[in-house]
Design a protein around this nucleic acid. Structure first.
Ligand SMILES: [Mn+2]
Ligand SMILES: [Mn+2]
Ligand SMILES: [Mn+2]
Ligand SMILES: [Mn+2]
Lengths: 239, 239
DNA sequence: TTCAAAGTTTAGCGTAGTCTAATGTTGATG
DNA sequence: CATCAACATTAGACTACGCTAAACTTTGAA
């Protein structure tokens, strides 16, 4: 066998898989992922990122513009979405089938995502009825690598009086996640924006249909991503 | 913090965990595990084993007698039994909850055993009702590290006319496992030894209660580990 | 009782992935 | 438009874990 044909698609290491996921999240809106941001998200030193970036671009998984940052190639994006599908399906499976709570499930999925086979992921997806969203409301990519691109607005930026469906909670921090759960702020909840204080002050919302009020400080409101709901003459439109 | 106190119990690497499991199986009957046997079971070169043996004995997980072999220390045995518990619970969970078949489940467990948390293992064990045996009939160590030491005889050595319960199938090979399943030879089956040909010939058995006969060649009979059943005047005693 | 095969270890090397310290680049500011 | 602080990269070291080739030990058979 020719050396040039050997190892055309070597399996990715766990470390590489985590880098690709982080780069996906950081460059999702079309921009570049910066070395220092990747380092912060993976909790490694910046020179470790520079070294990995070199190898990933030699492998064709990312494009590197020195001193600017990196972006995923089509191949890198496919690999990243495959890992995100695994991660989110694992979180949902552990939550629904094994009684994990919202906050503790992320760390477990972060390790298992590298060890499960495609077959196991398929079986878990089927056992869950091929779900579309993970427990945090994030969309689960399909096996073919498609992902729903949501038009979401942060609660901190939503207009006064607007009707919203909470879709995603943008943190992995279990203390914050538990707090949101206590407040009834989980994906799928409907709410209206009733007030916002100036100078980066808190947003006040009313839960639908109970009308219960909640006051959310700016730091947390920035983590609550919502879909704006069209209003019909009879009430909220269904999705 | 003193350097001597740092990293007293560093987490074991997946590679180390696999070495400990293999050494446990090879030295189980009180003997030494030989370098070349470890190498064969892990599919690595003998010098790789020598290198790992050096590190494991420095860490206090094994005892090494040069040119003789290795044995587990108490600490190494604890770590090995923890991995075996994980492996066997994973195999049972995948089989019972996710429809895996007898043969395909080993490879999946071999990877997952290194990634699951103690909490996940506990949850799976509880979901299965704290089971005692894995799908191959092997005993599952307790969380405290106790394991049933069975008095088993290979079908190839069982006396003519003896009544047996098939308890363990001593192979991971999926082709052999599937063949055994087709023949109805799975852990828990009762059988009587009706004939054995000389010169390493096949053993003939009768399944209980159907009486269906099976002829098992010596190679396969050596893999079928059985418990000898006491016979009461009313039939087989229950366990 | 020798000696060669089988088995084991040592020597030396390579890759992956991390680190710290030093050096280079860029862009905002005075 | 010169400077500097922030950010990125390079240099050099280290651990884990593989490999091959060479040297060493054990042991059974001649
Ligand atoms: Mn997560
Ligand atoms: Mn991960
Ligand atoms: Mn197994
Ligand atoms: Mn393993």
């Amino acid at each position: 066998m020719h050396a040039t044909l050997r190892d055309a698609n070597p399996p990715l290491t766990p470390s590489v898989e985590d880098y690709l996921k982080v780069i996906y999240h950081l460059s999702n809106q079309g921009g570049f992922a910066a070395t220092s941001d990747i380092a912060a998200m993976l909790d490694v030193a910046p020179p470790s990122v520079s070294g990995m970036v070199k190898r990933l671009s030699e492998t064709g998984l990312i494009e590197h513009v020195p001193y600017r940052g990196v972006q995923l190639t089509a191949q890198g994006r496919r690999a990243a979405l495959r890992m995100i599908r695994r991660h989110r399906l694992l979180e949902l499976y552990l939550t629904q089938q094994l009684g994990y709570d919202w906050g503790g499930v992320h760390a477990e999925a972060e390790r298992l995502e590298h060890a499960v086979s495609d077959e196991l992921i398929d079986r878990m997806a089927r056992a869950l009825g091929d779900p579309l969203y993970d427990p945090h409301g994030d969309p689960i990519p399909t096996a073919a690598g498609e992902i729903e691109e949501a038009e979401l607005v942060s609660l901190a930026d939503a207009g006064l009086g607007s009707k919203l469906e909470l879709r995603q909670v943008g943190t992995q921090d279990s203390a914050r996640l538990r707090f949101f759960a206590e407040q009834g702020l989980t994906p799928g909840v409907l709410l209206t924006v009733t007030d916002r204080q100036p100078f980066n002050g808190p947003t006040t919302i009313g839960l639908v249909p109970s009308g219960d009020p909640r006051v959310v400080g700016r730091e947390l409101a920035l983590l609550l991503w919502c879909r704006e709901m069209p209003v019909t003459d009879r009430g909220y439109a269904s999705r």
